[in-house]
Structures are given as C-alpha cells and as structure tokens.
Amino acid sequence: MDTIIIDERIDVGAVFKKNIIKPRWFVWKGRKYAITEVTYTWEDTQGAARVMHFALSDGNTLFEVSLNLTSLEWRLEKSSVV
C-alpha cells in the first residue's frame, strides 16, 4: 500500500447532522475532491485539543482528514492507494 504523508491545511465542506459531522468535499492544491464515503472515524488529543479524524474515500483513494476541535482547522494528513 502506498501511503503519502501530506499534513496540509485544507478547506472542507461538511454537513452537521444531529451530533455527527460528515465531510462532503475538500479542496487540496486547487482541486476539489468529492467524498463518496466516510469509512471510519476516531478521536485523539493533541495537547489540550480534541482532534477528530476521518477516513474518507473519493472512490479511488483513501484520505485521512483531521479536524482540531479547538482551532477548528481541517488538515489533510495522509492519502493512500492500495
């Protein structure tokens, strides 16, 4: 599996439904990626901040995207293709 570490700030469009956050698209390097599936979510902490992690698929590639709940910053952490 080829995994690339990206770790860059991105813009994300997300839907907040009840108490669930569902990212729908994000823009990275001028290109818009439509998310077809949120495959997994998990949480951890970075310092005092809670961070939500999302594994997202656009149909070809799996992206790991994080949302820092203190700074409200979205980051594209990794992408991987099998």
Partner: peptide, 9 residues
Amino acid sequence: VEQAMNPAL
C-alpha cells in the same frame, strides 16, 4: 481496524 477503515483492504 485497518480493514474496517479502508474498504480496499
């Protein structure tokens, strides 16, 4: 967990 996260696996 990895397989749950990544459908391709």
